[in-house]
Amino acid sequence: MSALDAIAPPPSPTAEPTGEAGLGPWAAAWRRLRRNPSGIVGAVVVGLFVLVAVLAPLLAPYQPATGEWFGEVTPTAVPGPSADHVLGLDSFGSDLLTQLLYGARSSLVIGVVSTAVGLAVGAVLGILAGGLGGWVDTLVMRIVDILLSIPSLLLAVSVAAVLGRGQWSIMLAISAAQVPIFARLLRASLLAQRGQDYVVALRSLGLRQRRIVVGHMLPNSLGPVLVQATLVLATAVIEVAALSFLGLGAADPAVAEWGRMLVTAQDRLEQAPQLALYPGLAIAVTALGFTLLGEALREALDPRSDR
């Protein structure tokens, strides 16, 4: 056996009965993912959500929050579906379909950016704790434990209240709540890799700890983190709506947000229940799509899942 064979990470086991012998771990995971019905449903929902968010200016029939038809809204009635407005108007005389489409764009941008920031900061803390160990591990994990002791939504609300209203405040607030989750998960994955044969062989060859952690242990520890990032996106969509519902969203009323739509619908529930029904369904379906896709990814990346 050559030196390269000695330091190579052990291949992930694959299930022989499913015909996955000879496939690499990522190819086998992709094959399992394609066979998962819930994963396909989740991928379709997420794909539609992304398409709607990206193509909102092309799909929306009007500009958001124009209030152009405010004169048609009365204290006792809100116009429903019509030829000009497929879903009707909202309480401020704007097209409801346009508000929903632009609300998807707002949720996607905030969810993706906040998750990316939380993943980046959490990954740094996880690498420091799991890769270096010792007093660094103890210090980082005590900070993470303090953050984990605070409910995520409460932490996000506190950060957003301190920073003030705005989309950037919501992004930082949600990412702050996600940092300890990613940090602890990556640390656990790195600790599981430290005792592997290839890591021991790398140390015996005299490689530096930094190169071992970044070049070899980290790539083999990213699977659970990527799965968690997909699941966290579902939580991020809900938290974006929650913070907007609490009045911590964008200060500009022209920015469409699903949470704000729920707030403005409270006084009109008896007259026009669709004002709360449509954004509520959009939040629920989007979060469900990310959850189904994340669970399917978790099963696909687990080589022991033989179905």
Rank of each mutant, 00 (worst) to 15 (best):
M1E: 12
M1F: 09
A3M: 14
L4I: 14
A6K: 10
A6E: 14
I7H: 06
I7V: 15
P10M: 13
P11H: 07
P11G: 07
P11A: 15
P13V: 01
P13T: 08
E16M: 05
E20G: 07
G22T: 11
G24M: 03
R31G: 13
L33A: 13
L33I: 02
R34V: 13
P37M: 12
P37Q: 11
P37E: 10
P37A: 06
G39E: 00
G42Y: 05
A43I: 02
G47H: 01
L48T: 12
V50L: 15
V54H: 02
L55Y: 04
A60E: 11
Y62C: 06
Y62N: 10
T66K: 04
W69T: 04
F70L: 15
F70G: 13
G71A: 14
E72Q: 11
E72T: 11
V78F: 02
V86G: 01
V86C: 04
L87R: 05
L97H: 00
G103I: 02
G103M: 06
G103F: 00
A104G: 15
I110G: 07
I110C: 08
V112D: 10
V113Q: 08
V117W: 05
G122Q: 07
G122N: 07
L125S: 04
I127L: 14
A129Y: 04
A129I: 09
G130M: 12
L132M: 11
G133N: 08
G133Y: 04
L139Q: 04
V140S: 03
V140T: 04
V140Q: 05
M141T: 09
R142G: 09
D145K: 01
I146M: 11
P151V: 03
L155P: 15
V157M: 13
V159D: 15
V159G: 15
A160Q: 12
R165K: 13
G166R: 03
L172N: 07
A173T: 01
A173L: 04
I174S: 15
S175W: 03
S175Y: 06
A176S: 15
V179N: 10
I181W: 12
F182K: 02
R184T: 08
R184E: 05
L185C: 07
L185V: 11
R187M: 05
A188D: 14
L190R: 02
L191N: 03
Q193T: 11
D197C: 00
Y198K: 02
V200I: 15
G206D: 09
G206P: 11
L207G: 03
R208S: 15
Q209K: 06
Q209P: 11
I212K: 02
H216F: 10
M217C: 01
G223W: 09
P224S: 04
Q228L: 11
L231N: 00
V232G: 10
T235I: 00
E239G: 08
A242H: 02
L248K: 07
V255S: 06
V255R: 03
V255Y: 01
V255E: 05
V255D: 06
W258Y: 13
R260G: 15
M261P: 09
V263A: 13
Q266R: 14
R268Y: 14
Q271N: 02
A272H: 06
A272G: 06
Q274R: 15
Q274G: 14
L275A: 09
L277E: 10
G280F: 12
L281P: 04
I283M: 05
T286M: 13
G289D: 06
T291M: 05
L292A: 11
L293I: 01
G294V: 02
L297C: 08
D306G: 11
